[in-house]
Design a protein around this nucleic acid. Structure first.
Lengths: 243, 243
DNA sequence: CCTTCCAATTCATATATATGACTGGTTGAC
DNA sequence: GTCAACCAGTCATATATATGAATTGGAAGG
């Protein structure tokens, strides 16, 4: 039984093509996070390569955090744990001082909308759906988000039921539209509150703001979301590793 | 010919012990960045392991950016390219609009000094040497830095000749004290200018400030430097990848 | 019914080996 | 002297294989 690589330049090394092939199968949702993918031996047999080559391909995907190895049990698709990323920036805790938690989200707007220039440049299209949310911890608003996603990829997004929206968008993208966000680039800068932003965040005009602009990419490195999030600079905390 | 692993728990896999051993040899400055380290075949022979095991050990060090492979030529120690990291935050250009460059540095203070609590906590000692610098681009001050390093590791630092100081400290740490900075953790927040900081940066009192607190670690993950850097928030730009 | 033990499955480590690709220097023809 | 061809050394890819370690599920036994 010899499965095919997904079309990709066959001058590339086998382990690279296998990695791409597996990434694509993961993106298609062929495997769930609960069940192991086929064993290394099976994959080797299926794609007619050696186990070593499979291991090297899987190594890559493990490195990219798409897969997770569990010795003795198998290799599993890693649930896209893109969870609290944005909230690493605002290290807030619930009033009781407990662990950080994912803030609740209030949907303010969701509509077909022409993307502003900077979002259009990042996404490569002006035909987008705009989402505006206010995120809060313990009823205190902490982050005001404007989000743009390409209308083409997310057609039907405007008509989703409000009940489908949880506090996190990326799982929704994946479940309803098969869009798996794999990485993102965040740009941080500093600004000042005004108008709707100030009002929603309950800040004074000109209050210092931390501004985070994010472009998110799917498995194929195609940009699938642009957003700008703003929160009070006073509460801003960010930690990063440099190597 | 069988070289020894540096003492490390011999229950660990061979490739891990070899990686540690090589890391230690790199840290000792046994190889320069200009000459290749011994070939994979030679290392395999010297340590009595297979080439595959050597490759896996070297893979690790390449991943950590300690080594760099050049097909056909060899594997080289990577010059600690910790250069412009801090200045990723302040994306400033020379007045002529040219590429970013490393800012010049004016030494303001260098003396044995008791570390403030937060630095002492990071470094594990209060017995430190304090360095204060003002960094400028095209004569415009952009960053005010206070740096603490453990007096024990850097004994003699106070008596270094001023001429030894270039714009970057990490090469100096390495050349004069054998301390190789491998990674660092940066904590970002926003604050307000006052006193000496405001004066040196030529900002008004209460001007918004970006604050970066960094702890730097050597190859053995021992903290070897703590610093706090401050610059005008207005010029602050930071980009990061999330995956 | 529960615990213990065992066997199968799976990933983890390690070796040995072969071939290809790239680099840098040497050789030799002109 | 110049330049092309060659060659030796090095990392890159790929295979085959063996053994160890962790997990799981079921059989055996009380």
């Amino acid at each position: 039984m010899s499965a095919q690589f997904t079309t990709s330049d066959d001058r590339l090394p086998a382990y690279v093509r296998l990695r791409d092939t597996l990434a694509s199968r993961i993106a298609k949702g062929e495997w769930t996070a609960e069940q192991p993918i086929p064993s290394e031996a099976r994959l080797a047999e299926a794609y007619q390569v050696s186990v070593g080559t499979v291991r090297k391909a899987v190594d890559g995907l493990v490195n990219e955090r798409l897969l997770e190895r569990r010795q003795g049990s198998g290799t599993f698709v890693k649930a896209p744990s893109f969870d609290a990323t944005l909230f690493r920036f605002f290290q807030l805790r619930e009033a009781d001082g407990s662990q950080l938690s994912i803030p609740s989200s209030k949907l303010i707007l969701r509509s077909r909308s022409k993307a502003p220039e900077i979002a259009a440049a990042a996404l490569g299209t002006t035909d987008t759906i705009k989402i505006v949310r206010l995120r809060s911890l313990s009823e205190v608003p902490v982050l005001f988000e404007e989000i743009y996603i390409p209308a083409e990829e997310f057609s039907g997004f405007e008509t989703l039921d409000d009940a489908d929206f949880g506090p996190l968008l990326y799982p929704l993208y994946f479940e309803k539209f098969g869009v798996l966000v794999k990485r993102a680039t965040d740009d941080l800068s500093f600004g000042r509150a005004s108008g709707q932003v100030a009002q929603q965040l309950r800040l004074e005009n000109d209050a210092p703001l931390a501004v985070i602009q994010r472009t998110a990419f799917d498995i194929e490195n195609k940009p699938v979301e642009w957003r700008i999030a703003r929160g009070s600079a006073a509460k801003f905390r960010y930690r990063t590793e440099i190597t």
